[in-house]
Amino acid sequence: MPHPPHDSLPHAPGVGYKPQHYGDIIADPAPVEWLEIHAENYMGDGGRPLAQLEHLARRFAISVHGVGLSIGGEAPLDRDHLARLRHLCDWLQPASFSEHLAWSTHEGAFLNDLLPLPYTNATLARVAAHIDDVQQTLGRQMLLENPSSYLAFDESTWAEPDFMHELALRTGCGLLLDVNNVFVSATNLGYEPRAYIDAYPLDLVGEIHVGGHDQDHDDHDAPLLIDSHGRVVVEPVWALLDDTLARGGRRPVLVEWDTDVPDWPVLAAEARRAATALQNVHSTPRSVPGTDRETA
């Protein structure tokens, strides 16, 4: 596809792209310099979604974010789906490709949620093999995103930041740090979110997510936060973003809003907030992982 190449995402605000914002984004993107799309929404044969994407890609760096590969699945990766991802990435030449530390498919049935994994050596070996497979098939480095957790597996023997770090070391993948997910998981499982950030290998982080969550409670009336992407980012998550940027330096920062999607000015205001957070960072990171590097 002919368009100016974007080899990497800018260290600037991006938003999750929603088709209802197309006209507004073209007219006035505010501080938004890049867009993230959910890969699976652009796997049709043609029509408006791909035409709009082609047009947007001429102007904005695009991040392709998969939500259906089931990288944590016990079964081998779905070859058909991997081929579709490769087709999309070959055509679009996006600045970044990312997926989740999660599973979603079992025996061919797709559950459309990011389901949790135990952090064991067996999971580590399996997920690492799947990441190798993805990176070889796509011919590019991928970023792996930390999940939102509502519960913990008794069998887990790794802390999540160490588990993510080890996967990156074994596979050469980069990491996507969702600070809302950190806040949600830390609240739900009762740990300190800043300790998680401190343990996370920020030099391997190629992209940061923020987003809104819902509030519920568990059987013991303990807070249970749900990663819904359906409202504004809360203050403690913005504060966690500030801390993360201060520690690790500027990064591409994405605002996610996937349910009850608001009119563009509301999302643009969230992007402006992310721009302010980025402007307040004076240091630059020691090293930034490339998102366009070919894997061996």
Partner: peptide, 30 residues
Amino acid sequence: HRAITTPNLAPPGGLSDGHGRPAGRRFWVY
């Protein structure tokens, strides 16, 4: 998978709230 897709099935064991208590309704989020 069975516990997520079968109505009224109890949540599986081996899942906790991070403080050693069974996950209970936390599992129903999925």
